[in-house]
Amino acid sequence: MHEWALAEAVISTILNVAKEKGAKKIIKAEIKIGTLQQIEVDVLTFAFRELVKNTPLEKTEIKLKPEEVYFKCRVCGVRWNFSNATSALGREKSEAIHFIPDLVHAFIRCPRCGSPDFEVVGGRGIWVEYIKISK
């Protein structure tokens, strides 16, 4: 149900931007979903459907697009992906990353040099890629 909180945040953002830009109509919004946060797309879609009721977003096309996350070691430069890194993590650690993606730094290390100093490249959380409006 944490997805509900994320959906609320996204909807508030779209409505704020549309208002700021003086939109007559919000035609489409593209939402990127980083794989690091392991968002349940079905739950998120349901939350959007419920939350847009009686808002200017009721007829807006909301497109959800996943974005793969990669990690890059700041020490040796190696890049690796999330599924390789987290397949061995248990439920509790995965859940921690689901709530606060940056906590991944407590649980994984560079597969080549073992450093904890790595960067999350793209695909961290949820963000609005763009909004298409008419004026």
Partner: peptide, 13 residues
């Protein structure tokens, strides 16, 4: 029609 960028959604909530 215009495509516009949006800020970090977490800030709105």
């Amino acid at each position: 029609n215009f495509k516009v960028r949006a800020p970090d959604p977490r800030l709105a909530i």
